[in-house]
Design a protein around this nucleic acid. Structure first.
Lengths: 368, 368
DNA sequence: CTGTTAGCGCGTTCAA
DNA sequence: TTGAACGCGCTAACAG
């Protein structure tokens, strides 16, 4: 088709062959009108033939003719136009605190494995830890009319803000981090259970002086684990809790507070013989701090991480850590969101996924 | 405003106060018409007042009035409607082969740091290595009318396909991987230079039997490094190249071909004393294979990786590897794309970023 | 400087 | 079973 050598093709929009020509020249995709013309039917018929839901009301013959025309023209429905009409963008905003934290790729991957088959596209936004970046991201995604959100950025005190969003009709699911009182479903690992497993493991090894190097207090993960830590230590009076140290959930954070801890008690007899860290990145920093003092893990001190981020088993020593089913976290949160988007409820529920202690090389009996 | 207690509010769309009410009840955002009504001007005036480019042509007084009204109503321009009208979605499709490969987060992060300030949103799509998934992703993104692509998935033989896209008016930039003949700009690390540095380093250490464990042949990175490997070995006849082994760029791939290599020459005297791998993941697998045989790195064999992925320095031993400026790769590719989108040319150019050999613990003089 | 008009491409009423 | 008409929210042309 369009074999003639027309060169100065005025962009007449709705006149016979020229539309096809426009397409082949500039790459602009065919519209529904083009398909209608080629199939010899009306636009609305094309729309119906291409939509599985309305397709049943057409004669098979017409359906086939339309679909053949569409295929011939390489017709691709314009998602923007459809979105304007249907008020559904078939996209979901996924907001994460820091893409460079290795726990997020598996979560995102899990999310995607559910959203894509359901017809949704994930718009992943990394806010790099910034609070105002979070606001901007939210605004930008709402402006793009995403159908819902998966938020991995929740802070404990965001409940009120979430309630406002909820009242505005915003659909969302929280993943990994929860808010104190949230109208949105939450999917997270069993922080308390993981902490207990870690402590039981250390106690079994014979540790009696244990510290907790945790993350910022405004995170639900911190709170859950710290509460479990306190609770456990109350039930195990034979174990001395030598303090609870707070720092950012980064290698630098871990390194710094471990250094502080070592400064505070330079003598081995007073120092904790084991620490549980807020996540694996902090554990990594703690390892570095130890190394910097010429101390060894697990010889001089045992370390338990949290999350079992990718490659935690390749560290030196391989990290003993509480495995959180990261990919599954993504899967379940996406499922819950799709459920909401299909008006199948599920609001406000809390899904706690079981965790597993991975015992590896960074824990051993205490020195001496 | 809207203080009256109207309860059964029929959704009259364009009648006075009820629009406001609709908004407060259901969360539907105010439209440009609502703002126009409140500000007492025409829609187009609102549009102009809110668009920095056209704003100059308005009286400051009007501009202020409109902006105040917009703020009061919490007006957020509908990006979907705007996209339909302007035929610009202000979004860019970023297609990557595998999100779980740690080299991609830094690349994506770099891309984002350029796109976001330029007003674009990155639509990151992970094709999980699947070729048909790639086609689907491309179609889906085009259907969403992305303004351009950043492709990290290029295969050597894709030149023709890229030319077709280019002729259709598609804007794109290739990152990390190139195609044999591409109309699109390419940004990648200096594969050949990195390989030479790695080999020089090994030669200096005294290695005379070196192997290359490389990735799939259809990748430009593989080709570039292998060509440099061959070229270098031709110039260094004193060094025996003990073979070139191909496998997937994963830990499993590296583990398997290293096992094969060890099977092929079980005796230490015939075995290569050093290998350069296609990337750090393969290096990781090679390390595992070594360990599985009770061999040590670097004692029995030295290993050089490629990319310097995050945490490669935390492996055991810390990996000697060719650092590719991953984040910069992302930054430059995004820059080039934005340039194209602004019609500032830059098409077809090739940007080769310098790489650095990071000498760490996985290389040492050969045994014996 | 501002208002009017006219679609962007689609899905969804209504009628026939 | 199909066609006609309408409008989603916005911006770009053209007037005035």
């Amino acid at each position: 088709m369009c074999l003639d050598g027309v060169t100065n093709c005025v962009p007449v929009m709705s006149e016979g062959r020229s539309v096809l020509h426009r397409r082949e020249v500039s790459g602009l995709t065919a519209t529904i009108d083009d398909v209608a013309r080629v199939a010899g039917v009306h636009r609305s018929t094309v729309s119906r033939a291409l939509n599985p839901r309305t397709q049943v009301k057409l004669s098979p013959e017409t359906t086939r003719r339309v679909q053949r025309a569409a295929r011939e023209l390489g017709y691709v429905p314009n998602a923007v136009a459809r979105g304007l009409r249907t008020n559904e963008s078939m996209s979901v905003g996924v907001v994460i605190p820091d893409l460079l934290n290795p726990i997020f790729p598996p979560i995102i991957s899990g999310i995607d494995s559910i959203l894509r088959p359901a017809g949704y596209t994930a718009l992943v936004t990394d806010i790099q830890g910034g609070l105002d970046a979070y606001e901007v991201a939210l605004a930008s995604l709402r402006q793009r009319r995403v159908d819902g959100f998966i938020l991995a950025t929740a802070q404990l005190d965001e409940g009120e803000s979430f309630h406002r969003l909820h009242e505005q009709g915003v659909r969302a699911v929280l993943v990994n981090r929860a808010a104190a009182s949230s109208p949105f479903p939450v999917v997270h690992g069993d922080d308390a259970g993981g902490m207990r497993e870690a402590l039981d493991h250390l106690a079994t090894l014979g540790h009696v002086r244990i510290a907790h190097l945790h993350g910022p207090e405004w995170l639900s993960t911190t709170e859950g684990r710290r509460a479990a830590f306190d609770e456990w230590s109350r039930r195990h009076p034979e174990v001395t809790v030598t303090g609870s140290y707070c720092g950012p959930l980064t290698p630098e954070g871990g390194q710094e507070i471990m250094s502080d801890l070592l400064d505070a008690s330079p003598e081995a007899w007073s120092r904790p013989t084991a620490v549980v860290t807020g996540n694996d990145l902090m554990a990594l920093g703690a390892l570095r701090a130890l190394r910097a003092r010429g101390l060894h893990c697990p010889g001089d001190m045992s370390i338990v991480g949290f999350n079992d981020m990718p490659f935690a088993d390749e560290f030196s020593p391989p990290l003993t850590t509480v495995r959180v089913p990261l990919r599954q976290l993504g899967i379940e949160s996406a499922r819950l969101l799709v459920q909401q988007l299909h008006d199948e409820g599920g609001g406000g529920m809390e899904l706690t996924l079981p965790v597993t202690l991975m015992v590896r090389g960074s824990t051993a009996p205490p020195p001496g």
